[in-house]
């Protein structure tokens, strides 16, 4: 064991750096999904579409900014702007005109409504942005690279990947935890998550909470997409792949659990990059193995609460 670490310790260190950045992106998508589920009790299949649309929008705004010759540092705020635009438009529209009509329905119907939205949004993306890969990497290039020592050698990492992604994820995690525990709106959201019936009985306007949460969740997904757009090309179908991954994170974490989503994302991110080094063939299976493993031991996810059974 000691010998193994002497040989592979450095590689393991590199794997951790990569895994962290990946986990940060996974967290950004999954946390919004989990938040929405906690409050609305709807597993939003179209969440992956918000991710894709957020990325496309960021790339479009970024290209516009560049074409106007505006200052380069704008590349970073543009990512947040894209998230606000997508969340602010798509969120209320979908919640108000579609989801609100089906809150009383069976979960399967709710799930399918979002599946229908997913299919529709897949084509909407194609109609707006076409099929050619869309790429805008100003934000990544802006910050340059950092040389990480590796034995006698050194490995360049992008500062964007090393600092921005984990930084934003950490900020989101802490900010969200603070918001949910320390502000009135946040506490109302928590109240609805824990016990919807009691919360509405106490006079909480569930409609408002739902609208707010869904918009916020959509914005978080869009921010995830916007953050990934400087490093990854956007292509048709990117939403579907993101979706399955965030499902796995949410189920591993426990439904509605914010901190759980962070830990599950870390496990999946690190597990994946360690697999790329030491067992590449297992890379794609990592999220599912982790999820099934966790659910075997804890049937409600890492931090899930056992629901009281109706009698």
């Amino acid at each position: 064991m000691a010998d193994w670490f002497a040989d592979n310790g450095l590689l393991l260190g590199l794997a951790l750096l990569d895994g962290l950045a990946y986990a940060a992106l996974v967290f950004m998508v999954a946390v919004g999904l989990n938040l929405v589920f906690g409050v609305l009790r709807i597993l939003n299949v179209a969440h992956g579409s918000f991710f894709a649309i957020g990325g496309y929008t960021a790339a479009s705004i970024g290209a516009f900014v560049m074409a106007r010759g505006l200052p380069e540092w704008l590349a970073l705020p543009v990512l947040v702007l894209a998230a606000v635009v997508v969340g602010g438009i798509a969120g209320p529209l979908i919640e108000r005109f579609i989801l609100r009509r089906i809150y009383a329905e069976e979960p399967v119907l709710q799930l399918l409504v979002t599946f229908a939205l997913f299919m529709i949004l897949e084509d909407v993306q194609k109609l707006i942005w076409g099929v050619q890969p869309v790429h805008h990497d100003a934000a990544m290039r802006l910050l340059g690279t950092v040389d990480v020592p590796f034995g006698h050698d050194s490995i360049p990492f992008t500062a964007y990947q090393l600092y921005v992604l984990p930084g934003v994820a950490l900020f989101t995690l802490v900010g969200l935890a603070w918001f949910l525990r320390r502000t009135l709106t946040g506490r109302v959201i928590v109240a609805v998550t824990t016990d919807r019936e009691a919360a509405t009985a106490m006079g909480i306007d569930a409609k408002k909470v739902f609208l707010l949460t869904f918009t916020f969740g959509a914005a978080l997904a869009a921010l995830g997409g916007a953050l990934s757009s400087p490093t990854a090309a956007l292509v048709p179908g990117v939403g579907a792949g993101t979706m399955v991954l965030s499902f796995a994170v949410v189920a591993t974490a426990g439904l509605g659990q914010i901190e759980g989503a962070a830990i599950a994302a870390l496990m999946i991110g690190l597990g994946r990059s360690i697999a790329v080094y030491f067992l590449p063939e297992a890379e794609v299976l990592v999220p599912y193995i982790i999820m099934v493993g966790v659910l075997l031991v804890r049937p409600n996810g890492l931090f899930g609460v056992v629901e009281t059974r109706r009698i």
């Binding site: 599912y288 999820m291 659910l295």
Partner: peptide, 14 residues
């Protein structure tokens, strides 16, 4: 419910 759905999804994806 959702865990049932998710586990089926995960196993099919495996």
């Amino acid at each position: 419910e959702i865990f049932f759905g998710m586990l089926n999804l995960a196993l099919s994806m495996v």
